[in-house]
Simulated assay, not measured.
Amino acid sequence: MAPEAWCRAVITSQDINIAILDTGIDPNHPDLAAKITKTANFTTSPTTDDLFGHGTHVAGIAGAITNNLVFGAGTSFNSGNLWNIKVLGDDGTGPFSGIAAGIVDAADAGANVINMSLGGAGGSQALEDAVNLAFNNGVVIVASAGNDNTDTPSFPAAYANVISVAATDENDQKASFSNFGDGVDVAAPGVGIFSTCPTHANVLGCINFGSLNGTSQAAPFVSGLAALIKATFPLLNNQTIRQAIESSTDDVPGSGTLYQFGRINANSAIITAGTL
């Protein structure tokens, strides 16, 4: 219900900064380039460009440019800048230390939302410390729950100060691959998600635009919604924005069992945020 939310929300650029911690973002993509306002690299790759293909897809879901006659609209509907914080290498992997460094960099630079469509087992003290620092700086932190169809925690999603996002399919059922369990907070669409892809060759083989599946695709729907709420109600802090998102979800199969809350509803979240 994003279009209904956009009708209620501030839809002009508000300098809300969405940090995409991922494999990079194609800086030349016509539906993303004008919104990329910060770039940083915490990998051994010589470039912040997305040679893997994952980060560009994630970025489009959260913040593709709106009303430019290209593709469609990101969930944040022009209310957010995109920060390309490369923390995963050109093979799509990276250590927790690089992710932690990216979190600290984004938080110190003034990010409003951090999206991490990534994760792994165990976590680390440095990663948890970085998450807590960002949270204490007022950042809304979002991460994918993982794609192993298990209730084993994935980090950073499982940390208390992170909104952990599972994936649902077109029937509002849990996606077959999605993680679930007590540590998962909300769900969002994650099957057959059409978004931006690099304009050049990449590991995933998605060029210009295409569809991918994953909790990686679900998380940026939540990040874009958080940015939309912040742009519309700039006095709300990160805890209240999280409350608005989680308390306004739709009750779908698995709500309260597979995930603590339900599937996000952008329109309901904007309405709820206006009452907080």
Rank of each mutant, 00 (worst) to 15 (best):
G138C: 04
S117A: 14
L118S: 05
V140I: 06
D50K: 14
F71A: 14
L133T: 07
A106F: 12
V113A: 06
G146Y: 03
A157N: 01
D105W: 15
N132Y: 02
N115Q: 09
L88M: 14
V87I: 15
A158N: 02
V104E: 15
V87M: 09
P95F: 13
G60P: 01
N147S: 01
G123P: 01
A62R: 02
D108R: 15
A64E: 14
A101G: 15
N149M: 05
V87Y: 05
A73Q: 13
F155K: 00
P153I: 06
N137M: 08
F96D: 09
A106T: 11
G119A: 07
T56L: 07
T48W: 08
G119V: 08
T56I: 08
E128V: 07
G72L: 12
G138M: 06
G63C: 12
G122F: 03
G89M: 08
F135W: 07
I61A: 13
E128R: 03
L51H: 07
I85Q: 05
G60W: 04
N147M: 00
T75Q: 11
F135E: 02
D148I: 07
G98S: 11
G123S: 05
A107K: 11
N136S: 14
G53R: 05
Q125W: 09
L82Q: 07
D90T: 13
G120R: 07
A109V: 08
V70R: 10
T66I: 10
V139T: 02
P153D: 01
G119S: 04
T93V: 13
G53M: 07
A126C: 09
A101K: 15
T56Q: 05
S144L: 03
L127F: 04
S76P: 04
F52K: 04
A145D: 02
T150P: 01
I114G: 00
P156G: 07
N137W: 06
G138R: 01
G102V: 11
D49P: 05
V70G: 09
A126Y: 09
S45D: 09
I99G: 02
F77W: 15
S124H: 03
N147F: 02
G92W: 11
N68V: 13
A101C: 09
A143C: 01
P156E: 05
V113R: 00
K86G: 11
I141S: 00
N81Q: 14
N78W: 12
A107C: 14
N81G: 09
A157W: 06
A157D: 02
L51F: 09
N84M: 10
I61Q: 05
A62V: 13
H57E: 03
T93G: 15
G63I: 12
A107L: 10
S144W: 01
G89F: 06
G122V: 12
M116C: 04
A106L: 11
A121P: 06
L127A: 04
A126G: 15
I85T: 10
S76K: 11
A145I: 06
G138F: 08
W83C: 08
V131Q: 01
V87K: 04
F52M: 07
K86Q: 10
L133P: 00
S79V: 15
T66A: 14
P46N: 08
T66P: 02
V104D: 13
S154P: 01
N136Y: 04
T152C: 04
P46D: 02
A100V: 08
A134G: 01
N137V: 04
N84I: 13
F135M: 03
V139A: 02
A157Y: 03
